[in-house]
Design a protein around this nucleic acid. Sequence first.
DNA 1: GGCCCTGGTTACCCCGGGGATACCGGCTAT
DNA 2: ATAGCCGGTATCCCCGGGGTAACCAGGGCC
Lengths: 121, 121
Amino acid sequence: MFDELCPSSYNPIRFGDKWAALILACLEHGPRRFSELRVPLARVTPKVLTQSLRSLERDGMVKRTVYAEATPHVEYELTPLGRSLLGPLAVACAWTREHWDELLDARDAYDHAASEDRRAG
Amino acid sequence: MFDELCPSSYNPIRFGDKWAALILACLEHGPRRFSELRVPLARVTPKVLTQSLRSLERDGMVKRTVYAEATPHVEYELTPLGRSLLGPLAVACAWTREHWDELLDARDAYDHAASEDRRAG
DNA sequence: GGCCCTGGTTACCCCGGGGATACCGGCTAT
DNA sequence: ATAGCCGGTATCCCCGGGGTAACCAGGGCC
């Protein structure tokens, strides 16, 4: 559903901070461990991933659970509130799929016209 | 429809830059002049408003028209692309109306727990 | 000439998100 | 003992969004 997610900075519709939308999508189908999240989010440094997860946790979107068993680990999962964001997120993704090219074309046209103007003085 | 819009920074779902969602909402019902936009956006300085409008124009969301008549002025209006964002924007507003309190409660709880932890060491 | 309206621009500054890199403490397995 | 894995921290730095304040050019008006 969120195949074409990219860092939010490239999208006119954004959720939370730069990587939040991707994190929400990664958690859509169940809990994930920190190291599991690092795989699809390989370009995100651990510090930034922690920051983003803490922010989502603070906003009640994500629940963090520490399992202090023989092999201790941490799991992150969506709360009902976090899950309620998946609807708007899907709407945003649909908008982007449908209009992304149009937006890029508009940017090219605008930038081209701007450089023409500069040349003309 | 967008009665409760606030600067995007306070919202987990954001459109464009800080003031873009408010601008889209202001343009929903027809073209507006620069000075007309400054009324509902009184807290936004002209520089920042211009920046935001230029960005929306570059992305093909807004069309800027100069009327060089006896009394010259400028009008900003939504393009079809900009208008297509109103749907996702309405979805985002609905989400916020429904879940805003829940989010604030989560923040309070998180911050409170954090300060307790600090006290306990 | 002097003033206002319109739609901006210019210069300056500040803060915070987020990137790079390195390090860390607990636990287990061998 | 030492080498992993796990889930992070610590430090430093940079850039750009966005805020303040002041200034500006063209036209109309009186």
